[in-house]
């Protein structure tokens, strides 16, 4: 993992997720902006996946458990896809809230992945 990239990713997912939840609660159906946020979050996750696969070759190894790291990463990659499909099937305000909520969940998961990669308490 690259620390600055991870921080940017958590920030985008948090702010974008919060924005989508607010827009959804305000009654907005999933528009290009909200779908764009989810797509951007997904894109960053795929970049993160590539980085994670490539990093050990450059001497950037995870300090924590790699298996645990990838369970988080793969789960996170699946979330925007699942939520995005749901938003396309039923275009209601609640789909917007769902897209926001999943971005927030991704933010938490990436934060956890960061801790697994860099910070070892025990």
């Amino acid at each position: 993992m690259i620390e600055w990239f991870t921080i940017v990713q958590v920030a985008i997912a948090s702010v974008g997720g919060l924005l989508a939840v607010i827009l959804g609660l305000a009654g907005k159906k999933p528009n290009d902006l909200v779908m764009g946020i989810a797509a951007l979050v997904e894109l960053l996750l795929i970049v993160q996946l590539v980085v994670a696969i490539a990093a050990p070759a450059f001497g950037n190894d995870a300090t924590g458990d790699v298996l645990e790291f990838y369970i988080y990463l793969v789960s996170a990659v699946l979330l925007p896809i699942a939520g995005g499909f749901w938003a396309l099937i039923e275009r209601s305000r609640w789909s917007t809230v769902i897209l926001g909520a999943l971005c927030l969940a991704v933010a938490v998961m990436v934060y956890r992945m960061n801790a697994i990669w860099f910070v070892q308490v025990a």
Binding site: L67, I71, S75, L78, A82, W86, E90, I98, A101
Partner: peptide, 26 residues
């Protein structure tokens, strides 16, 4: 609004399953 609830359930089910699988393997 139930769909939001269900989606949070999906996330939690995913998180709990992922964690459990990892704990059993590792």
């Amino acid at each position: 609004v139930g769909r939001v609830l269900i989606f949070v359930y999906v996330i939690l089910a995913l998180a709990a399953t992922g964690r459990s699988v990892y704990e059993f393997i590792a």
